[in-house]
Simulated scan of single mutants.
Amino acid sequence: MTNILIVDDDIHILNLIRIHLSEQGYQVFQAKDGMAALEILQKQPCDLAVVDVMMPFMDGFTLTKEIRRRYSIPVILLTAKNQIEDKEQGFEAGTDDYLVKPFEPKELCFRIKALLRRYDKQPQESLLQIGNTRINKKSYEVTIADRTILLPLKEFELLYFLMANPMRVFTRDHLIQQVWGFDYDGDVRTVDVHIKRLRERLLPYTDDFQIKTVRGVGYSLEAKRE
């Protein structure tokens, strides 16, 4: 059975989500604040977390960062605000998706299903390697030979996804969904900016792979042929 953690200080929201997710066959665990949520995660493995932004003791942004640091599970942030600054802060904290209150429980359910499918397709190992280049999802470090590089969060997640799926071509929209989440409403050209920065950061240190532009389609990571 799939375990879902719901974190919200509003008991009505907790009950509403619990009822709908239980009807979908999920096992639901509830917490009223971030501290309680971390205690649950220490005792009970969960497959996904739905986290409210505004909570006492530890807000949703901080909790998301802690979940991302300790566990490899998707996170959906809930918020009563629809400001672009709040969305930006959420994605910088590491959330996979973003839902603004009030929302339809049915929409939350299909977003959960989409994220679970996405994570199921990704490799379970936290360490990927191509040539002398290693990327560690637990420590968020990229190591090239004996040099360690720390990348901004979205650049790291973009590189990790491409390295996990070498020789495959992805559209900008697909990369946006995988790295920024389904609710991202910025310009898809942000992918171009992040790819450009990745190339600039990595080019001086490795030729183990190239992130190639596939004209009219998107991008592909191609490993160096021996």
Rank of each mutant, 00 (worst) to 15 (best):
T148V: 15
I144T: 04
K101H: 10
G131T: 05
A145W: 01
K138H: 10
L99N: 14
F110A: 00
K113H: 09
R147L: 12
I144V: 15
L151C: 02
Y119D: 08
K138R: 07
E125W: 00
L128P: 15
L127K: 13
I144H: 09
R118T: 09
Y140I: 02
K121P: 00
S139W: 03
Q129S: 15
L128T: 10
Y140P: 01
L159N: 08
F156E: 06
Q124V: 05
F103V: 07
Y119H: 14
K154S: 05
R147V: 11
Q124T: 08
E107N: 02
R118N: 03
L150G: 04
T143I: 14
Y119E: 15
S126V: 03
K101I: 06
V142F: 00
K137W: 06
D97A: 06
G131L: 13
R111Y: 07
D97K: 12
F103H: 14
I130F: 10
C109Q: 10
V100C: 12
G131E: 05
Q124D: 01
K138P: 00
S139D: 03
I149E: 01
D146H: 14
L153C: 01
I144D: 04
K106V: 11
E104L: 11
L158D: 04
Y140T: 08
F156M: 01
P105Y: 07
K154V: 04
R117M: 02
L108R: 08
K101E: 09
E141K: 09
E107F: 06
Y98N: 03
K137I: 00
L108C: 01
P102K: 10
K106I: 14
I112L: 10
L158K: 11
P152G: 05
D120V: 03
K137Q: 13
L116H: 09
T133L: 13
E157G: 08
S126T: 08
P123R: 00
R147I: 15
V100S: 13
R117V: 02
L158T: 06
E141G: 09
D97C: 14
Y98H: 04
L99R: 08
N132W: 01
D97H: 08
V100R: 05
S139T: 12
R111T: 07
P152W: 14
E107P: 06
R147A: 13
V100Q: 13
R134S: 14
L151T: 05
L158E: 08
P123V: 00
K106D: 12
E104H: 07
E125Y: 01
K101L: 07
R118Q: 15
R147T: 11
E104N: 13
P152L: 06
I130H: 11
Q124S: 07
A114Q: 12
E104F: 05
L108P: 05
Y140D: 06
P152V: 00
R147S: 09
R134C: 03
L99C: 10
K154P: 05
R117H: 10
L158I: 07
Q129F: 06
F156Y: 06
R147Y: 10
T148A: 11
L116E: 10
T148F: 00
K154Q: 12
L159I: 10
I130G: 09
Y119K: 05
Q122V: 00
R147C: 04
L153E: 11
N136D: 15
A114P: 00
N132C: 04
Y98T: 02
Q124L: 04
L108N: 02
I149V: 15
P123Q: 04
L128Y: 09
T148I: 09
P152T: 12
Y119I: 01
